[in-house]
Design a protein around this nucleic acid. Sequence first.
DNA 1: ATGTCCACCTGCTGGC
DNA 2: TGCCAGCAGGTGGACA
Length: 271
Amino acid sequence: MPELPEVETTVRGLAPILEGRRIESIELRRADLRWPFPPDLRQRVTGARVTTLGRRAKYGLIGTDRDDTLIFHLGMSGHWRTDPTEIGKHDHVVIVTDEGRRLALNDHRRFGSLDLVRTEAIADYPPFRAMGPEPLGPAFGGAHLARVLEGRSAPIKALLLDQKIVAGLGNIYVCDALNLAGIAPGRAGGHIARPRLDVLADAVKSVLKAAIAAGGSSLRDYVRPDGELGYFSKEWRVYGREGLPCPRCGTVIRRRVDSGRSTFYCPKCQR
DNA sequence: ATGTCCACCTGCTGGC
DNA sequence: TGCCAGCAGGTGGACA
């Protein structure tokens, strides 16, 4: 699940547990996830007080009063479990606060990551260096898309998944935004007329806001001991809905595979 | 530079 | 019941 709305929901769920709290301990139950943990992470985090919770694209940011920021990525299967009754084999990191609350970073596929960077150098964190604008921020809109898509021949779906174009979209919300905008996923990015780029940018914002709102309405259930969710999947327009009617025109939704990833789309009204 | 594909890892489901 | 293929929300890197 972890695209931008899920990370945003996660961060909002972590905030009341962590904000203002001292980190009593952090246990690294293995040496790495996707990459090795910084060797001094435990020493630098233990005893620090959490000052801020934030998000950049699909990364969660936990700032401390030692001018360090913990940066986590949930990969494909990552989630935080709150106050788990038992620590399982995929609970790779366990944080205990000064109130005795426990948070376990669980990620069975281990595509996620946990890093620690100096807060003032956060813009230099390699994944952030060339990253595009936040899709819900003021820098993202039709004008931005027109600028960065000019001359590009790759399919618009692939370009929207490129975090350098816009940061935070994944397979689900790209499929849904393209459906809402009525744009075919295979259309060349540079061959979309400017008015349609305005429509597309609005569609991206709209599907993300709806997903965050759905997550927010179930926030108490999101970061929880048993982890998994499922409440927003009923809101998907086309993703995971092969064979069901298109919400725009009723035509049967199709699925195809592009470079190993499923694309769901309406063959009639997405052009 | 741009476009395309694959590996990384584990677990689950469906077909035989 | 067991086995195996196929599938899964992301990303960096290796190619042409």
